[in-house]
Design a protein around this nucleic acid. Structure first.
Lengths: 224, 224
DNA sequence: CGCCCTGTTGACAAAGGTCAACTAGCGTGG
DNA sequence: CCACGCTAGTTGACCTTTGTCAACAGGGCG
C-alpha cells in the first residue's frame, strides 16, 4: 500500500508507513474539472493533494459570477477539513488539472487523529473552526457595495450584540472604503431596511434587507 | 491558576485543568487599540481570545489604506498560530476593544502539543501552513487592477511552473472579472513587463513588473 | 472647553463592471 | 480525417459604481 512518496508525506510519516503501518489516506486520480465536493454536501471525506490544483468557490450569493473562486489549494495541502468541525462542506471544490488526491473517510480520520481532548487536537479544532467561519474578503466583483453591506448585515444579524467594530474596519472586510460603506448604509436606511446612528446599526426590516442583499439573484440552480 | 472559565475552555480542557494540571496559557488584559504583534515580528507567542475582538491586517503594499483589516478574530479563536509553522507573524494584530487574551510562549505551546509526528499534529501543521500561505482575496480597495495583477505575478513568479490556472479563476482570486484581468495583462505587456499568449504568462522584465506593482507606494511609515 | 479622531456628505473623475462581438484552440461527431 | 461547434479568452464602447479629495459634524478625551 505504501508508495514511495508516502515516506516523505507528512501524513504518511504521521501514520507510520515507515513502521509498516497503514495510512488512512488512499490515492485516487481525478480528471480536470472534476467536482470533488459541493458546498452544503455532507462532509464525509477528507483529502490530501498529491498533485494538481483545486479551486474553492462559495455561492456568496451575488452577481453574474455566482461561484467565484476565492482560493486555490495546491499539492501538499488538505481539502475538506471542515468535515472535522462541521457537518457540511463550506465550499465547492473543483480540480483545475488532472490531479492525484489521497482520500479518507471523515470518521476514519477522526479516529486516527486520536483523543478529542489532546492539546494538538484541541488546537487543530480551533484552527479549523476559525478557518471555516472565515468569510472570504469581499471584492467589487461580488456585487455592488450596497448588496455586500446588506449581506454582511444578514450574516452578522444573529450576533446582533457583536458590533462595535469600527466602521473603518468593517469597510475593509467588505473590500471598500469607509466613505463607500457609509454611503451604502445611507442607501439601506433610505430603503427602510435599517436604522443607524453614528455607531450602531439596527435592522428594522429584514425583508427589505434580504431584498437589498438579493437584488436580482436567486437564479442559481433551478432553470433550464 | 485555573479560573472558572478554564474548565469550559477547549485549551483548558486539553491542558487538563480539571485534573489540576496547569494550562500553558495565562490570561492578560489589553486595552482597546493595543498592538499585539506586527507583521514580520519574530513569532514568539500564541494567543487565545477570551473576550474582545482583534483585527488582522497585512501590508499588502498598496494604496492609501495601507493596512486594511482583512479579518477579525473573535472570542474563542486563537491568534498568532502562524508561529507554529513560521518564524514571523504574517499579519499585524490590533485589539479593537478592551480584551482578555490568554498568552503562551511559542516554544511552550510547541512542547505542549506533543510529538511532531502525531497525526493530530501533522494535520494541524498542514492546516496552519495552508492558512498562513493564504493571501487574502484582493479587492479594488487594494489598488487598481493592473497593480493587483502585477503583485500577484510577483508572488507567483517563484513558482513559475505553477500556472495553468485558468484566467477566469485567477481573476476571481484577484477580485476582478475576467475581462478586467485580460485588460490588466494587456497593460503589463504594453509596459514591457510580461509576454503573454492565450494561456501562458512570461515575466520578461522584473523591474518593470515591480514598478507596476509598486506605483506610488513605499511611503508606509517614515514621514512626519 | 477645545482638539482630535471617526464617520458623513458632496462633487468629480477614473476605474472597472456590463454587454456584445469576435478569435483561437480543442474536443466532438460525422 | 476534417468540419463543426463549443468554451475560454480578448477587445471595444459605454455607463455605473466607487475611489478621490475635501469640507464638515458629532463624541470622546484630555
Amino acid at each position: 500500500m505504501a508508495l514511495d512518496r508516502c515516506y516523505s508525506c507528512p501524513l504518511g510519516v504521521a501514520a507510520g508507513v515507515a513502521e509498516h503501518r497503514a495510512c488512512p489516506f488512499v490515492p485516487r486520480e481525478r480528471e480536470a474539472g472534476a467536482h470533488l465536493y459541493v458546498e452544503g454536501d455532507t462532509a464525509d471525506r477528507v483529502w490530501y493533494i498529491v498533485s494538481g490544483y483545486v479551486a474553492l468557490s462559495r455561492e456568496t450569493s451575488e452577481a453574474r459570477s455566482s461561484g467565484v473562486t476565492w482560493a486555490v489549494r495546491r499539492p501538499g495541502e488538505m481539502l475538506g477539513t471542515e468535515g472535522l468541525v462541521s457537518d457540511t462542506y463550506r465550499d465547492s471544490a473543483v480540480a483545475l488539472n488532472a490531479a492525484t488526491l489521497c482520500v479518507a473517510p471523515r470518521e476514519v480520520v477522526d479516529a486516527w487523529l486520536g483523543p478529542e481532548d489532546s492539546p494538538a487536537r484541541a488546537v487543530l479544532q480551533l484552527a479549523l473552526r476559525t478557518r471555516c467561519n472565515e468569510v472570504p474578503r469581499r471584492s467589487c466583483a461580488d456585487g455592488n457595495a450596497t448588496r455586500r453591506v446588506a449581506s454582511w448585515l444578514l450574516d452578522e444579524a444573529p450576533s446582533q450584540n457583536a458590533p462595535q467594530i469600527p466602521r473603518q474596519v468593517v469597510a475593509g472586510l467588505l473590500g471598500m472604503l469607509p466613505e463607500t460603506f457609509s454611503r451604502a448604509l445611507a442607501r439601506l436606511v433610505k430603503l427602510g431596511a435599517i436604522e443607524i446612528d453614528r455607531r450602531t446599526i439596527r435592522v428594522v426590516d429584514l425583508d427589505a434587507l434580504l431584498r437589498a442583499a438579493g437584488e436580482g439573484e436567486g437564479e442559481g440552480e433551478g432553470e433550464p
